[in-house]
Nucleic acid binder design. Structure first.
Lengths: 208, 208
DNA sequence: ATAACATTGTTAATGAAATAACATTATCTT
DNA sequence: AAGATAATGTTATTTCATTAACAATGTTAT
């Protein structure tokens, strides 16, 4: 189908389309128009159609899109057949919150390991996920075939953790710490700095 | 100085510049070149210079920028004199994590109230912040003059919470729930969907 | 059967962000 | 004193994302 990389923002929306569509189907619906899907996400219909065009799916003129088919196509784009394994590094509130979000959801991703350097947390189980000491990161990541890691440790530790993750062969890193990371180009890095985003809101609130 | 709105991404970087500069100054430094600041954030020097140009500050040719001055200027842009008050709605792991991030930090923002609908949590204090029942949101927000709210409730409750916040006169909303919100244009909305971002990483990891 | 309509799919235009190119200038070297 | 250097500040270009315009077409109404 499409082997070309999709635009960043389109991929984000595909994930959101899928979730909205799963609800929609669960409510007993079958077909959906671009303007309906758009209104579920509060975006424009044309953006929906454009995204759907990019993934090579086509609807029908008077019925719109078949919701189930669209869900499947999006799954083929985002998921891998076997599912991707995720590790969470840093079992503070944020780490636990992410573990809670995902474990038990019907996504193809699964969190299979947590890491922390606090011995009180090591060898316990959080949201069904075993917690190991960070010293065992490389070992476990290789052994389990984990491809994605979430960094939710304090800033001071983030750089070191990232280096270890890269060394362990991780493919994607989701960094919530406030330290900008530097990773080789074969590792996909997504950073999100909550404080910065709050400060951005503060700025625009001032301007309103 | 500049009364024109700055670009979104520039504001984000300003926040990150400031934090990097605070460390830099704390380490005893005084002046910084664009390429040094850039390397702290892993971005390009030209982007740093452009951002700094946009805020109307200028460095000196052979010394670069005065770190303290730059910190002050950024403060004038982002902060308000009295500081902005923030509420967190939903005291799950994510809510607590955000409260922990901010309370006690040297930012001008302060979290002054938390809300939850779980009576076990109401009337307790988390990270120094009192937790009220969601039914009292409008009252407390008005009384305290809270301008920004973080929504960290489960999806099902998010829409209702947002409506109440808008009604209470909130100016900025930071939505972590997976439900897209719809707010009037005088409210600044920042949404972040953690699952979606993880799925995006999954996609790009596949593509690498 | 024809016209009006509602919807999709696609191309074109616009806007925002990042990058590149380059002009300027204070300092240092010789 | 003249030239080289290393930095800034700014304009121009490119790239990416969104929005607008519109052509194509199956369905419904008359």
């Amino acid at each position: 189908m499409i082997n070309k990389k999709l635009p960043d923002k389109t991929v984000e929306r595909l994930s959101m389309y899928r979730r909205a569509l799963l609800n929609y189907v669960a409510a007993g619906n079958h077909h959906i128009f671009s303007h309906e899907l758009a209104s579920l996400l509060h975006i424009t219909p044309v953006q929906v159609r454009r995204d759907i065009m990019l993934i090579g799916y086509t609807g029908t003129l008077r019925q719109g899109y078949d919701a189930k088919e669209l869900i499947d196509i999006i799954g083929k784009i985002i998921d891998t057949r076997e599912g991707q394994k995720v590790a969470v590094v840093g079992i503070g509130n944020l780490g636990r919150s992410i573990m809670g979000y995902i474990s038990g959801k019907r996504t193809k991703m699964s969190i299979v390991a947590a890491f922390d350097n606090n011995s009180d947390k090591v060898d316990r189980v959080y949201a069904g996920i075993p917690c190991y000491h960070v010293d065992r990161m490389v070992e476990i990541i290789k052994q389990e075939g984990i491809s994605i890691a979430v960094i939710s440790v304090p800033g001071e530790e983030a750089v070191k953790v990232a280096e270890t993750l890269v060394m362990a062969g991780i493919k994607g890193i989701f960094n919530f710490s406030p330290r900008p990371l530097n990773v080789p180009s074969h590792v996909y890095l997504q950073e999100y700095d909550i404080i910065t985003m709050l400060e951005k809101i503060a700025y625009f609130v001032k301007k309103i």
